[in-house]
């Protein structure tokens, strides 16, 4: 993953960014709570009361995190992510996200076969017959454990429908 070489994310920047994101999440929670009343009525606190103050606390604590970032992590040279690490993360997370997208489209069994096969051949440099054997074998093993043994049906897609497996 040479293209990520030298890209560095500092701890300070990441602390600030995370603080802002959690503050935003807090604001969204508080805003969502206003819909149900954040005060009191004769039955005690209204449904929005609890979430409203939770959101508020998140915003306040996030501001505290940001402030602490300035006092503790500024100009310390702490690194959050090096270029090499970013490369490894992308190499691992990329196929994983693709796997989830495939799951939604084709069901879990087909997606896991494709995912395992792709990672084994492209990243693991295994020979194609071995990779095919392992990936198809894994899918069958999971089918037996989940559907036959535990009787928990997993998501299936068009391929299973074509083969007549439900």
């Amino acid at each position: 993953m040479r293209m990520f070489h030298g890209m560095v994310l500092s701890r300070f920047a990441m602390e600030i960014a995370t603080g802002c994101v959690t503050a935003l999440a807090g604001a969204i929670i508080s805003y969502g709570a206003t819909e149900f009343g954040t005060g009191w009525d004769d039955a005690g606190p209204q449904p929005g009361y609890f979430p409203f103050y939770i959101g508020l606390l998140i915003v306040l604590a996030s501001l505290g995190v940001v402030a602490q970032a300035f006092t503790q992590h500024r100009r310390t040279g702490q690194v959050f992510l090096t270029g090499e690490q970013a490369g490894r993360i992308v190499a691992f997370a990329g196929p994983m996200v693709a796997f989830v997208a495939l799951c939604v489209l084709l069901g879990l069994y087909v997606a896991m076969t494709v995912y395992l096969f792709a990672v084994m051949t492209i990243q693991g440099r295994f020979k194609i017959p071995l990779a095919a054997l392992v990936s198809i074998g894994t899918a069958i093993a999971f089918y037996v454990v989940m559907e036959v043994w535990f009787q928990v049906p997993l998501l299936k897609g068009p391929v299973e429908a074509m083969l007549g497996i439900y």
Binding site: G26, F50, A61
Partner: peptide, 15 residues
């Protein structure tokens, strides 16, 4: 951990 971070994490859980 920083008490602020603990509160953020915990309150997100409640949220």
């Amino acid at each position: 951990a920083s008490p602020f971070k603990t509160v953020v994490s915990m309150m997100l859980g409640f949220g």
